[in-house]
Design a protein around this nucleic acid. Structure first.
Lengths: 235, 235
DNA sequence: AACTTTTGAGAGCACTGCTCTTGACAAGTC
DNA sequence: GACTTGTCAAGAGCAGTGCTCTCAAAAGTT
């Protein structure tokens, strides 16, 4: 299907709008994203932008999807540099990629993982697929390591009953995983903990407790998190 | 010093403003907090509110301090119900209190631990003290458990060198702690991980992966986190 | 009673998201 | 070529925002 000149022009304008939107997001945050300001930077009157983007929320969705994909691409690129079977290194590379990306793009990171933008509900049909790329990679790593039998045993804890196990079983079945439920639960914790650590750093929650070398602290955390799912320690 | 009627009236109005601000925060989020709307609810014209609160940012600071104290009070109340020496139970009570408070007050929680409000910088001199109450309790628990020698040994990992150790030593000395540096690092991770897990639940990051009983998953996480610093498991 | 301080009201500026109407222009059709 | 159709930008307008200013009334002080 050949692109008509119109389609080409429209696509270019859409790309310009998302690019300018990204810049404004970085400067003024999600709540400060203004369609009028985007229009000004685009060299166009505000109402013209509405021909391309139906509303401010639609622009926000565009940027959310764009952000998830940028983070996903960064993680994928980092994972591509690691030998296929070195699951410990893969986990660490994933964690580092998330941290580096978040620190480099705090506004986009905040849009994805910070407090929800008031009055905005991300449409699930557009955001879930790109939004689950990172956690998908994480379970791939854990499941792969489990399949390769390189995981140290994880004591399950005493909570092996109840509806939680059913939920985990359902997820396990849905994703076609081999890992036991207890390990899957650990994986969820590692997922949440990883983003918790990055959150604190990106959002400046460490605050007064200034760590001279935050990266070293993060590596320390990665080691502990890897141990939590039984991944072998580094060096 | 006796309060003059004017001082009383002023204090009452200030309380009314923060209360209404809290309500608006819960309904419209931090970015949607409007001084004009607060004035309307107060039954007063917008400029009158500026007699009490110098700017929108000042109102935000008021609400941040208020939020930190509310969370700190909730944690303290939860800790008071636990026997003094049961450090494992204290840790779990702290974690549960944070989660319950966050789920009950998602907007205030988001103001404290979500993405920073664009264009707003919390003045450190007013927010650090209440902002460190929870983490202060956490290190109290870990340090207390270490002092009582009830912690299982924690393998330090191989990263026992470098500037990180110096930073941790400095913090340790500043707070007058007895715990070894490696355990302190674990404590920081547990802190970040705890809020990471609560973040995901409060901000709806779990999204599609619906856990029928999120509290059970959280208990599972608490167990794992307790183990991370060597606190004894529950039941 | 006279004076000072505090307070609220109202107007105003520049900004926002969004809607509506109007007119210009290009693409396809008879 | 003339005509219809669809796309686009411009501008005005509405209701809301943060914030500043002036002015008059109220409250407290002497």
């Amino acid at each position: 299907m050949a692109q008509t000149p119109r389609e080409r022009a429209r696509l270019r304008t859409m790309e310009d709008i998302t690019r300018i939107g990204r810049e404004h997001l970085a400067l003024h945050g999600a709540a400060g994203l203004s369609l009028r300001a985007v229009a000004r930077d685009l060299g166009v009157v505000s109402s013209a932008v509405y021909r391309y983007v139906g509303s401010r929320d639609e622009l926000l969705t565009l940027l959310v999807v764009d952000g998830y994909n940028a983070l996903g691409d960064a993680v994928d690129a980092a994972l591509a540099e690691v030998p296929e079977q070195d699951y410990g290194a893969k986990f660490r590379a994933l964690g580092r990629a998330v941290r580096v990306w978040g620190l480099a793009e705090p506004a986009r990171y905040g849009l994805l993982f910070g407090s929800p933008v008031p009055g905005y509900n991300a449409p699930a049909e557009q955001t879930t697929a790109p939004g689950t790329r990172v956690v998908g990679r994480l379970v791939e790593i854990i499941d792969g390591a489990f399949g390769a039998a390189v995981l140290e045993p994880v004591q399950a804890g005493s909570r092996s009953t109840g509806s939680l196990m059913e939920d985990l079983s359902a997820i396990k079945a849905q994703l076609g995983l081999a890992v036991p439920e207890a390990l899957l639960a650990r994986g969820v914790l590692v997922w949440a903990a990883l983003f918790g650590a990055v959150n604190f750093e990106v959002f400046g929650q460490y605050g007064a407790a200034t760590f001279g070398d935050p990266a070293a602290l993060f590596e320390c955390h990665l080691d502990a998190l890897a141990g939590l799912v039984g991944l072998p320690g580094s060096g």
